[in-house]
Amino acid sequence: MKVIEINELHKIYNESEVKVHAVNGITLDFDEGEFAAIVGPSGSGKTTLLNMIGGLDSPTSGNVIVAGSEMSALRGSELTDFRLHNIGFVFQAYNLIPVLTARENTEFVMRLQNKPAKECKSRAEEMLNAVGLGNRMESRPSKMSGGQQQRVAVARALASKPQFVLADEPTANLDSKSTETLLEIMEKLNREENITFIFSTHDARVVKKARRVITIEDGKVVSDERK
């Protein structure tokens, strides 16, 4: 089943002056349960593509259809709501809320969805156990390593059972051991929860683990390999 359809997507920056074609006519599909990496050199347009899939940026032309609804048709708070209920985000810089504990951070998205507190708590504990942080539930981000923080971020992204998870260079700030642990966890969750994962990365270790590798250069897909 198709989770995401991308049709002739263009993104042009600086339209009035020197035009920069960050995404230049990309057409792609993602199926449920995929574990896909978008790779390419810096400035190739992978983050821009990811932002448009995530509804954080709007395309100049073309469209992104997630679970049957076209994202460019959504405005303001509808789009925020759409992101809340359909997409999980993992950022390069972890971006946890520093004043909340690991458990509270994991619960956060579910709480925004107005799910009952009890349900949020048990799901957050389940997810933190799944990412191997069952013993750090009440720790604040400042007391955790980068790898542990990123695992909390993954737990947060998955806790609300989104349609898919977008991870923008999730391993960029991690050492090799933490990268390996994180990838194993993400792969395990991808299998167990059947959630689609899409990464942007230029980390060879991530590329190795991915079951589909999409290479982008100058805003265009140059290869799309499935392993």
Partner: peptide, 16 residues
């Protein structure tokens, strides 16, 4: 600013 951006990105409405 970055944290507020993240909150809005993951689905926190502006009113909240």
């Amino acid at each position: 600013v970055k944290e507020l951006g993240m909150l809005m990105a993951i689905g926190m409405k502006k009113i909240k």
